[in-house]
């Protein structure tokens, strides 16, 4: 077991654990945001740079600090390592820089974007974005395309995390899309404009941290925070059949995979479950999913505010509770 200290909290982890995984074991505020890393996708991570942290002490053996900030998602823990995330001003500054970079070409179309309310970039911007933009340059623009009958691609919103590319590569039999071009002109595209056609392609929507890939069967049907996400399951011959059913009254508006606290799917689900089973009789509804209290989705009061939420009368703020 290796000992690592993150923001003054000591934890023991197994060899091979990354800093991000160790931080997730601690949980709470010390967890760096991750836009491109995805535990179940091999080779993901390292790209978005929003999880940068400072290694103030390399290891017990070699206590020198690492001169540059490191991507916590792809840096393995060493025994005796000391990591700074929220307590390092340098890290916070760098993260603000990264968020600014992610936003300079991202359209501010949250009001009409289906992802609003469950968008990782939106959360990141609330945390680290600036109030005013410093850029006067026009944003890059791409046409909106249908990649097959089920998925819509808004390349304008893409932050190039590569998750969908990896998902397509690792979940589907025939890899049909990837990254084209270079630099700030790179874009996700299907090869030679073919449609994406695979039993598991819908998971690309779930792994997309922003609104670049959206579910064509759900587009503009409802804001996510008007819906109640319920755990539901069915017998399925392709996947586990365990899903989240997003309901309004007795109607199912959409089906997604079940996401954990870090926004990652617990299991990938098949397209039949996702796109074809929209009737309540298709599913056994288990009950409401646990949603973070901070999420706008829980603002719909479908889950009672827990006892123990302290309201500070003076600041008028609510202590966040998990």
């Amino acid at each position: 077991m290796l000992k690592v200290t993150i923001d003054n909290i000591l934890i023991e982890v197994e060899e091979g654990t990354t800093i991000l995984q160790a931080a997730r074991m601690i949980g709470g505020k010390v967890v760096p945001p991750a836009m491109c890393y995805y535990t179940s996708l091999k080779g993901s991570g390292g790209k978005c740079r929003s999880c940068l942290v400072k290694v103030a002490k390399g290891s017990a053996k070699d206590p020198r600090p690492i001169p540059k900030l490191v991507a916590s998602c792809s840096t393995p823990v060493q025994d005796g390592m000391v990591v700074e995330n929220t307590i390092s001003a340098e890290v916070q500054e760098a993260r603000k820089g990264v968020v600014e970079f992610l936003l300079i070409n991202h359209p501010l179309d949250c009001p009409v974007c289906d992802q609003a309310g469950e968008c990782d970039l939106q959360d990141l911007s609330y945390g680290f974005g600036m109030e005013e933009t410093n850029t006067r340059e026009p944003r890059r623009e791409y046409p909106v395309v249908d990649i097959g009958p089920l998925i819509k691609l808004h390349m304008n919103r893409c932050i190039h995390c590569y998750r969908c590319v990896l998902a397509a590569e690792q979940l589907t039999k025939k890899r049909a899309h990837g990254m084209l071009y270079r630099g700030d002109t790179i874009e996700i595209s299907t090869f030679i404009r073919t449609a994406i056609d695979s039993d598991f392609s819908g998971n690309m929507i779930d792994v997309c941290p922003v609104g670049a890939l959206t579910d064509r069967s759900f587009r503009f049907k409802s804001r996510v925070w008007f819906l109640n996400p319920m755990d539901a399951h069915r017998e399925c011959s392709h996947c586990s059949g365990k899903v989240a059913a997003w309901m309004f009254g007795n109607e199912i508006y959409r089906i997604t995979g079940r996401k954990d606290t870090f926004g990652e799917l617990e299991e990938f689900i098949c397209n039949e479950c996702r796109f074809e089973k929209k009737d309540i009789s298709d599913w056994v509804i288990e009950g409401p999913r646990k949603i973070k209290r901070q999420s706008v989705i829980s603002g719909n009061h479908y889950e009672q505010m827990k006892k123990g939420s302290i309201i500070h009368p003076i600041e008028g703020t609510t202590e966040p509770q998990e």
Binding site: G46, K47, C48, R49, S50, G97, V98, F101, L102, I104, N105, I159, H160, Y162, M179, Y181, R182, G183, D184, T185, I186
Partner: peptide, 10 residues
Amino acid sequence: SCGQCSPCRE
């Protein structure tokens, strides 16, 4: 730029 990481790409 290969366009892989945010600071360099953007």
